Computed example of a mutant assay.
Amino acid sequence: MRDVKVRASALDGWRSNLREHGYEPERIGALSAVPPRELRGTSPMPLRDFVGFSESLVRETRDMSIPWLVGRNYDLSSLGPVGDAIRASSTVGLALRRFVEYFELLQDCTDIRLECDEQSASLSYRILDPNIWPRHHDAMFSLGILTQIIRAGTTDGWDQVEFLFEADQSEMVGHVNRLVEAPCSFGAETNMLRFPVRFLDCRLETTFAQAPIREINQAIAVRKRSTPLAERLARVVYRDLDRLTIDQERVAREVGMSGRTMRRKLASEGSSFQEVLDECRLRQAVFEFQTKPNLSIAQIALRLGYSEHSTFTRAFHRWSGISPQAFRERLMNKVN
């Protein structure tokens, strides 16, 4: 997978929020490598760099409220056309759906979704690239933006909201539940904000005349055409590995083509679906070793779609040169 990107305007607002909360941005090392807006513009930057920035800033200040507050106060116009579409929305539900539907223009390789039942709605956010970890505080930032949208249309009912985080509680500095003003759970499969479904119908005051839908759809089409097929498939596989059976035909439909066309195009790129699947499984295995030390090798093999522990062990040995157990022990020794 090539270096995944995020819109550089994700860095907007951090200095001003730090200053408002009593920090001197000039004294914070994590900000020293961040160029001013007029120099970086809105061009993409590596997502790993942005995530590393947010993690470093919280480690340095020991203040996990910063990413959350930046998100809660973020200027939606910094999101470009996507922000304009959100600001032109008449309801919370429409604004959130546009944020989710168009998020790929803001950040690569991220699973963000809005799901509803009769009583509740949930917004989930998870970076799919298994090479990016830790990644706790970019989630605080993104959930902060989503919370800003919801709170713009609601005046009551926040006592019925709850948050879930990928990170373990020991990895989050401070009292998260006090910060977000809602109950929190940790060690979840994804970062999630759950709230009453009636919030979606709450009215918003529109602050932009008309959503630039045609411009956004054209940008999405251009983006898809410029992304290698193997990479598009990998993102679907990473999203579904521990949730659904990975079926070639279904994955092909996800990217808008038949299985035959998918195989032909992959061959022209010098790849195959099995190679894409194997690479995703093995990179995800390393991520599981890092983040779920209590799971056995057999449990991880099952999560990755291997029916037999031995099949996973052989595949991992071919890929890395050592057994999964030996690889995990090396990781643990580095941490300790």
Rank of each mutant, 00 (worst) to 15 (best):
P35W: 08
F316T: 06
R235G: 02
E162Q: 11
L277K: 11
P130Y: 05
R59Y: 11
I300V: 13
R243S: 11
I246S: 03
S272D: 12
V6P: 03
R151F: 09
A33V: 11
E60R: 06
L31R: 05
F273D: 03
V51F: 11
L123Y: 10
Q248R: 14
I216L: 14
L114T: 05
E288H: 08
V197C: 06
T261D: 08
M192C: 14
R283Q: 12
P44N: 07
K265C: 05
Y102G: 05
E205T: 15
V161G: 01
L164E: 15
P46M: 09
T313A: 14
P212E: 09
R178N: 11
H137K: 10
F312P: 01
R263Q: 13
G41P: 09
R253P: 00
T206K: 15
E118Y: 01
G153F: 04
G83M: 08
D159T: 04
S43D: 10
K224Y: 01
R135Q: 14
D111Y: 09
S78M: 10
F186N: 02
M332Q: 11
R113I: 02
Q160L: 11
S124I: 12
D108C: 02
L79T: 07
P44A: 08
V92K: 05
G52W: 05
D278V: 02
L331R: 07
R330M: 12
V335M: 14
N73G: 09
P228A: 13
L164C: 11
A167N: 06
W133S: 12
T147Q: 12
S16K: 12
A167S: 13
D156I: 06
L244Y: 11
Q119Y: 09
L244D: 05
S320L: 01
R7Y: 01
P35V: 12
F312K: 02
Y23T: 01
S272G: 15
A211S: 13
T291V: 07
R2P: 14
D240N: 12
A182S: 13
L229P: 10
E254S: 13
R15T: 12
A285H: 03
T291L: 00
V161P: 02
I127L: 15
R37G: 01
E181A: 10
R223K: 14
I28R: 06
F103I: 03
S170W: 03
E254G: 00
E115L: 12
D84W: 01
P46I: 07
V6W: 04
R2Q: 14
T61K: 09
W68M: 03
R260I: 07
R62D: 10
R239N: 08
L244N: 09
L266W: 11
V51G: 07
E166L: 10
Q160R: 14
F165P: 00
L282V: 02
F208E: 08
P293T: 06
S32Q: 15
F53I: 04
D117C: 00
G270M: 10
S185D: 02
